[in-house]
């Protein structure tokens, strides 16, 4: 655990160190080039701001209206019939839509079920192996003013679904591979 903590702390400074060092050694005008790149960064961020406002308002409405809970209740019985744990359903539904909301839900699930329980580990593995698909597609596309996304969302959702199903299968094997679950 300490080693992994340490690696995650040093990796960013290390990357910057190597690049600054190589720049100096190869005698390029490091700071001028940095400023040129950073100016591009300014433009890119300003371009995605309207997308973020639009997206956050719509997702905020979905969350605060209570409709997500309603949909969860509606489809839970089907998923449970397919032996998908009911506790995980809200997380699976929210994961592609909202990063902060799914993190909050995952934390809640892990707290309630126990961090080393089957459900607790499953929630963690799902969070670790999936991304906020809708946000990524919207931000990437709108940063260059794309209107037609050619169905890329289906590929991304197929990946998310696979991530969730494989997480479920692999976490079932955890007691065989590692330790038994704690209650």
């Amino acid at each position: 655990m300490n080693i992994i903590n340490y690696i995650s702390i040093i990796v960013i400074p290390l990357v910057i160190l190597i690049i600054a060092f190589r720049g100096l050694k190869e005698k390029i005008s490091v700071f001028d080039i940095f400023i040129k790149g950073a100016t591009d960064g300014l433009e890119i961020t300003l371009k995605i701001f309207p997308t973020l406002v639009g997206l956050f308002v719509a997702i905020g409405m979905l969350r605060s209206s209570g409709i997500l809970e309603f949909i969860t209740e509606l489809i839970s019985p089907i998923l449970v019939m397919l032996r998908f744990p009911a506790e995980i359903v809200p997380l699976a539904l929210l994961r592609p839509i909202s990063g902060s909301a799914s993190m909050a839900i995952a934390t809640e699930i892990i707290k309630q079920s126990g961090v080393d329980s089957f459900i607790g580990i499953l929630a963690a593995v799902i969070m670790g192996s999936t991304e906020t698909t809708l946000y990524t597609i919207a931000v990437y596309s709108s940063s260059v003013k794309i209107k037609n996304t050619r169905g890329v969302i289906f590929a991304a959702l197929a990946a998310d679904l696979t991530g969730i199903i494989v997480s479920l299968l692999i976490v079932n094997l955890v007691p065989v591979l590692f330790l038994p679950f704690s209650p």
């Binding site: 390029i28 300014l42 890119i44 961020t45």
Partner: peptide, 14 residues
């Protein structure tokens, strides 16, 4: 974004 765009610009010249 500004920081990493700048860092990346340097890296791309090395």
């Amino acid at each position: 974004t500004c920081l990493w765009s700048g860092i990346m610009e340097i890296a791309s010249k090395t």
